[in-house]
Design a protein around this nucleic acid. Structure first.
Lengths: 341, 341
DNA sequence: CTGAAAGCGCTAACAC
DNA sequence: GTGTTAGCGCTTTCAG
């Protein structure tokens, strides 16, 4: 087997405990022996065994990251690698490792989480999505296991540390923008209503309409899986009305791509015939045609902040529950235009 | 602390070793005691401590996944979540966990790998990219640490287990398709030549041209970061020739998006003015406009196979080095058309 | 300042 | 079939 702390101890003529202290840079060790021990470590090519260490200190220096169950095509959404990048960079900086669960179906996802929690694999967890009545989140809460949520909790908001954008506000601002451009018939296309982010964005939309005294037309509000053809019917229907929308607020960049594509098949051009606004500011929203007017939600920063909050909590058990709101910024591009009729 | 194997042993009136045997479902334990022990575990809410187990068996049941250093925008490429999904599903099935390194810069990436390897954090590693003279791969080879590569090794091919498509063939086929469509002036746009996949696809392109007796025009071969504006100059130049290309073989779907976008800004339409073929068949290649004629490289399967190969290797130390070639399939869509002039 | 020794929770001979 | 007993490699009192 590999070289252990004992080998180093022997070579440096000290006790294993001394070596251990050198590793953790304990100030009570004389510089002389420190130097000697380090030299021995060097020569032997010693590297501490993390497992043994973790067992002894009952911690793992690892955090678990839970993606939504991959049944959904959602995983192809570049949102995830991007948060991961943020989380990863913070983890690196603080010496934590990343354990990732990519899901499978809901049951498997849950199993993975149990393994992480019960098996002492990770010290804390970051949940990359928020939906109502999520069994995993309920489990984490029940077990009092440290975790932070990326997104807004469906309930028990005050008891859960989470990192989110102000999606209601962002959506409201975006809708107001459309209104300023002269649009009145504005539709909302969102994904599954299970996700809190979807309903938040819907709320913002409604608020803006109400504030502008535009009646809310329930027929203009559609929830569907727009990535697949199933969404086509919905879009077709939307434009079969005698007074179809002149603008659409779409809840996600990937979805927008799909919607624009469907529209084109129906002979409806964006932005000429209909303006589209979107969310997330994925890299591709800039290079798609038309480039998307979209809300930059700062995905990377969501990752950074969530990792930061979790790690703070792990270091100080009594760290208070907190909410971190990452600012958003609207990117004005070419998928919207003023209504001139 | 949590409930341990001893607690269960006591409660079930057996020795800890018996409990351990029940956990691993050792056939030498009578069904009666098995039942009794399981009941005790149930009642106590016992879950084995993975760290302790790992320490005892000197293994971690975890595999490390190394992404390219995230300096590159490449991480926003949905390729990664998709392989991850494949790897994850295989890992789940076999009881392995996933450790992910998201990079940071090259140095940090390397550090992470060392931590994984030396710290005994993972049993094996999957490298998600292949480039020439990659220090990480060299390190892994030198340390004789079990790993598999997604992509083709730059050298020492016979000593490294890897999972890849036949990119040369795929590229050749695609180029032939363009030739059949009547194109003669075909350009190749690829990413950094560091990546083996880039050069493989270039090779296939060249082979097809040569086979068709079309001289290779070096001015038609461009390597650049097409995601950013830097690529624009290259594209502009390409179309400033008196005889510009009528078709372009682009090495990646995301890149194709960017290229089509640039072309449009130059007033060049796809497929009317220029045909474009692409690689990867990301989900978005179907919903972009025009939808992309692209090579489906079966990303998910690349993930599955790489995990499978690694795990086989981990289970049998003497498992031979192997090469797995995942089949590709060309998806014919709307970014290409026959040349009629 | 440093050493000795007792664990952390589990597995794996080796007995019986 | 099941119990006993050493470890796995590291940390951490407690002495000195």
């Amino acid at each position: 087997m590999a070289v252990t702390i004992k080998d180093v101890a022997k070579k440096a003529n000290v006790a294993p405990s001394t070596v251990s202290r050198v590793i953790s840079d304990n100030p009570r060790i004389s510089d002389a022996t420190k130097k000697r021990v380090r030299k021995a470590m060097e020569e032997l090519g010693y590297h501490p065994n993390v497992n043994a260490r973790n067992l002894a200190i009952r911690s793992t220096q690892a955090i678990g990251v839970i993606m939504p169950s991959s049944a959904e095509t959602s995983l192809q959404n570049p949102f995830f690698p991007e948060v991961l990048r943020g989380i990863g960079s913070m983890a690196l900086e603080t010496g934590y490792s990343l354990y990732v669960s990519t899901g499978g179906d809901d049951t498997q996802s849950f199993e993975e989480v149990k393994r992480m929690v019960y098996g002492n694999r990770v010290d804390g967890i970051i949940l990359l999505y928020s939906r109502r009545n999520d069994p995993i989140m309920n489990f984490l809460v029940k077990e009092k296991f440290p975790f932070v949520l990326v997104g807004k909790p469906y309930k028990k908001e005050s008891q859960i540390t989470y990192v989110d954008n102000d999606n209601i506000q962002a959506s409201k601002k975006m809708t107001e923008h459309l209104i300023e451009l002269g649009h009145r018939r504005i539709a909302y296309l969102g994904g599954t209503t299970d996700l809190v982010v979807t309903t938040d964005r819907l709320d913002g939309y409604k608020q803006a309409l109400s504030a502008a005294n535009i009646p809310i037309n329930e027929k203009f509000i559609i929830h569907d899986e727009f990535l697949r053809s199933s969404g086509r019917k919905a879009v077709e229907k939307l434009f079969s009305f005698s007074e179809p929308p002149t603008a659409i607020l779409v809840a996600d960049d990937m979805m927008s791509l799909g919607v624009i594509n469907m529209l084109e098949e129906l002979g409806i051009e964006c932005p000429e015939d209909v303006s589209i606004t979107s969310f997330n500011n994925l890299y591709l929203s800039e290079i798609t045609r038309p480039s998307l007017t979209t809300v930059d939600i700062n995905i990377y920063s969501l990752g950074i902040q969530s990792a930061k909050s979790l790690i703070e909590r792990l270091k100080a058990k009594d760290e208070p529950v907190k909410r971190v709101i990452v600012p958003f910024e609207i990117k004005y591009r070419n998928s919207t235009r003023a209504l001139t009729e």
